[in-house]
């Protein structure tokens, strides 16, 4: 019995770790979308950040430099998107897709020198005192610092959105850019800031994947996680806490299907591997089926191009 309990604790721990990259990217995209901008380039930004972060961590031997470089790279990639969609009025969907495709190619191109390179590994200590608690210790308190940072970030973003003036401005830019503009707010600059923040967080997520989670770089390693993160924002009806919850849910489904395989459950493996994608669809359907509910929660100007002075 003790062994089973321990297994559950470890499954929880793995779920937290698997959900964290999705949570980081999802929270970043949430900031974007709350300002009314959909950036479908998440996959590309994460790829560029994964290779940049890995390279930086490899060259300096410090993973935090790697995360910072990943954030910078993600923001830089996002700035292309921001400039095109906000100042040149390009279609947000098309521009994001272009960034995804560009990021995949560009990361493979610049990253070829870093494939098969080995990082100095840092030891994950966990939280002193709490890490040795029975059950809770192995389940919750032996994680990489970024896992806890993601939770803190969620709280910070929620506070920013609902308790600060700037958060209110950001949200009103997403709801009604024209009235925000009329009130004298620099709508495009605010949106650009949100896009950059979103890119930076997608960047940290990509860097976490290549520096901590894998830990290695190889082309194509983002493997659809950016799209899942985009799905999370809809799941969450654009609420920070629900993004985090959704990320853990998704991480949990992923780990659970692997766990069931290890237990020898007799379902064809392809159907097991479908689970995360199918559950994404199912949750999307469940969340979206009430259009009023979505309309109440979705930033009203989401995906629409804003023309100042028009």
């Amino acid at each position: 019995m003790g062994a089973k309990v321990n297994e559950i604790a470890l499954l929880l721990a793995a779920t937290l770790a698997a959900g964290t990259p999705l949570a980081l990217a999802g929270l970043g995209l949430l900031v974007n979308e709350r300002a009314g901008v959909v950036n479908l380039g998440a996959e590309g930004m994460m790829a560029i950040a994964a290779v940049t972060g890995f390279a930086a961590a490899f060259l300096t031997g410090n993973e935090w430099v790697g995360f910072a470089a990943g954030a910078a790279a993600g923001a830089a990639a996002a700035s292309i998107f921001g400039w095109l969609s906000l100042w040149l009025y390009t279609n947000q969907y098309a521009t994001g897709l272009a960034l995804s495709l560009f990021g995949a190619g560009f990361s493979a191109f610049v990253g070829s020198g870093y494939v098969g390179k080995n990082l100095e590994r840092s030891v994950v200590a966990g939280i002193p005192g709490l890490r040795d608690l029975p059950f809770l210790g192995p389940a919750l308190f032996r994680q990489h610092p970024l896992v806890y940072l993601a939770i803190a970030l969620m709280a910070a973003i929620a506070w920013f959105f609902y308790r600060t003036r700037s958060g209110l401005v950001l949200r009103s830019v997403g709801e009604s850019p024209d009235s925000a503009h009329a009130l004298g707010y620099p709508v495009r600059r605010i949106r650009m800031a949100a896009v950059l923040a979103g890119g930076a967080l997608c960047g940290v997520s990509g860097a976490y994947l290549s520096i901590v989670y894998a830990p290695m770089w190889v082309e194509g390693m983002i493997a659809g996680r950016g799209w899942i993160a985009l799905a999370l924002t809809v799941f969450a009806t654009w609420r920070p806490a629900r993004v985090l919850l959704g990320a853990y849910l998704f991480g949990g489904v992923t780990m659970l299907q692997l766990h069931l395989q290890g237990m020898g459950v007799q379902v064809p493996l392809q159907f097991m591997s479908m689970l995360p994608y199918l559950s994404t669809v199912v949750v999307l359907v469940v969340i979206s089926r009430d259009p009023l509910w979505i309309r109440l929660n979705m930033p009203a100007s989401l995906g629409k191009t804003f023309h100042p002075g028009s």
């Binding site: 062994a3 297994e7 470890l10 499954l11 793995a14 770790a17 698997a18 990259p21 994947l209 989670y213 894998a214 830990p215 290695m216 190889v218 194509g220 390693m221 493997a223 996680r225 992923t254 780990m255 692997l258 766990h259 395989q261 290890g262 237990m263």
Partner: peptide, 17 residues
């Protein structure tokens, strides 16, 4: 090849002993 997924699979096996 999908390093994050390989890592998850390995973790899952380790979790099961």
């Amino acid at each position: 090849v999908d390093p994050p997924k390989e890592a998850e699979a390995a973790q899952s096996l380790i979790n099961q002993g």
